[in-house]
Design a protein around this nucleic acid. Structure first.
Lengths: 189, 189
DNA sequence: TAACAGCTATTCAAATTTGACTAGTGAGGA
DNA sequence: TCCTCACTAGTCAAATTTGAATAGCTGTTA
């Protein structure tokens, strides 16, 4: 899965109630064409899917909306909120940059303690991955692509860089930067 | 598009002639579960698609193949070879890590001069991207996710790291490391 | 000998993503 | 007035990707 569901739920949650086009505008304005690449179709599909799963509920509003055609207003249900939290937590430990970015975009919706724990977890996973990559066989004149030192090098350096990034964010969070959610939600001890 | 087409064509080209399962085994053995994540379904789909587009041609071999059920043997056509080269060149300038990795996996199928030109091009694209990212507005207490300094930081550091990686590979290639294709192919000056 | 595990080889339905297209409304100019 | 442009809002078919299932052969074990 891509990060669409997380982004869509997050976008609606930030506004309390929202409609397709607003979600689309939010997301396309957030990404600097860099960290997400979601198209209208994916967003509207995700909206339908989320509604059919009971993650959101909607009303068709046709009265006194100012410009353009009528639209469907969505709200995130309790179930959807739980789903959002689960997606958010898994995004924040993901090695994938798009996932992780989307997680960071909504980091303020968790508590400082939760973020710290998740970032630690990501860092450890990345370090394990570095160990593994360093152990791979390589050949100067590779007999098959997997033994190409540059190929392995690309991934070692990516993962090392991610580990450093994670560490840096963690340090900032621990130093008391930014604001976080203080209200506790289900699934917490 | 993902890197499947490139990987499939590359795998067949390396063996001269090949069949679905061999392509699948190649690709899954190359990725260290890291730099590609292609499933059987995608590979067989790509094989069908490529054949229908005339990029490959196939024979059903049923005689004296040793184990298991019968299979379809594919060869890359001239047209497929041209497609492969185009995909390879575009992978090598891609900002996306999966694309770029797949390109590096087959770098020896281009000439040293071609690789050098493409890597330069990638580095320049990445540097332009860094300039852009550095110019983005940020807020310590972001009013919307796109202004989150950590989010922007993640991408700055990713792109900077990619620029450095590209530079490093370029330096090695220029220093005479590795072996490349000396035979010239169409579309070259 | 039959049954099962394990490798070879692939298929297929369902889910997701892409890319391109449709359509309503208001503002401003000719 | 009427036309066109730009913005709002969304739909849809086609392509791709996923996840899980199917099916052929060979060797081993009970």
């Amino acid at each position: 899965m891509s990060a669409v569901r997380l982004l869509v739920l997050g976008s609606i949650l930030r506004r309390g109630t929202s409609h397709g086009y607003a979600v689309l505008s939010d997301i396309t304005s957030w990404h600097a064409d860099t960290w997400t690449n979601v198209k209208p179709g994916s967003i509207y599909h995700a909206l339908d899917k989320l509604e059919s799963e009971g993650m959101t509920s909607s009303v068709t509003s046709d009265v006194n909306v100012k410009p353009g055609p009528s639209r469907k207003e969505y709200t995130v249900t309790k179930k959807g909120e739980i789903e959002f939290m689960a997606l958010l937590e898994s995004a924040l430990v993901s090695v994938d940059l798009q996932q992780f970015s989307a997680g960071i975009a909504f980091m303020n919706m968790l508590s400082r303690q939760q973020i710290e724990a998740l970032l630690q977890k990501r860092r450890i996973a990345l370090e394990t991955s570095i160990q593994f990559l360093r152990g791979l066989p390589m050949e100067e004149l590779p007999s098959d692509p997997s033994k190409n030192p540059e190929l392995v090098g690309i991934w070692v350096s990516y993962v090392e860089n991610e580990a450093a990034t994670t560490e840096r964010i963690l340090a900032n969070v621990q130093a008391g930067k930014y604001e976080f959610n203080s209200k506790m939600m289900e699934g917490e001890r």
